[in-house]
């Protein structure tokens, strides 16, 4: 390669006027072994440019948006399951309670019917109470005989 052409290219290069092709020409010239003595100082500059271009990006590309999506969906699913669990628990509890209160305290909408039922219930209670008392009345016999024996 003609030396005067290289010198011209170098001048152009430092003015920022060279094209990519011309710059590549310079690069190949300076990467060769026979660089003119007075141009030796430029050798490392072009050498460095070639070397710097060889460096690579080795770290991985963290496209974790997909993973994040999975986590979001997983948490949504988990909260849904929890809510469903709590919901069924509450639902079953109320279902059991409603009939039990109804039978335990049985209510009537019609007041007359309620009165009749109440009287019936009270009559039943007093009847049984009286039969109880009758069966206990013989206990008085003990008192009578005791009084006979221990006369005051």
């Amino acid at each position: 390669m003609a030396l005067d052409r290289i010198e011209k290219l170098i001048d152009k290069y430092f003015e920022g006027e060279t094209s990519i092709a011309e710059e590549n020409e310079l690069k190949t010239y300076f990467s060769s072994l026979d660089v003119a003595q007075h141009l030796q100082q430029y050798k490392p500059v072009f050498g460095y440019f070639s070397q710097a271009k060889a460096e690579e990006f080795k770290a991985e590309i963290p496209l974790n948006t997909k993973k994040r999506n999975v986590a979001v969906w997983l948490s949504i699913a988990a909260s849904f399951v929890i809510m469903l669990g709590v919901g069924t628990f509450m639902y079953l509890n109320t279902i059991e309670e409603i009939p039990s209160t109804a039978t335990a305290y049985g209510t009537y909408d019609d007041p007359e019917k309620a009165l009749a039922e109440t009287e019936k219930a009270l009559a039943l209670v007093s009847e049984h109470l009286n039969t109880g008392i009758e069966s206990v009345s013989y206990i008085n016999e003990y008192q009578n005989s005791k009084n006979k024996i221990f006369k005051k």
Partner: peptide
């Protein structure tokens, strides 16, 4: 502007290297 800045940068490198 880029050409001017490039020329300036290259000349700085040359200066220090020389």
């Amino acid at each position: 502007t880029i050409r001017v800045a490039l020329s300036r940068a290259r000349k700085t490198i040359r200066e220090v290297m020389t």
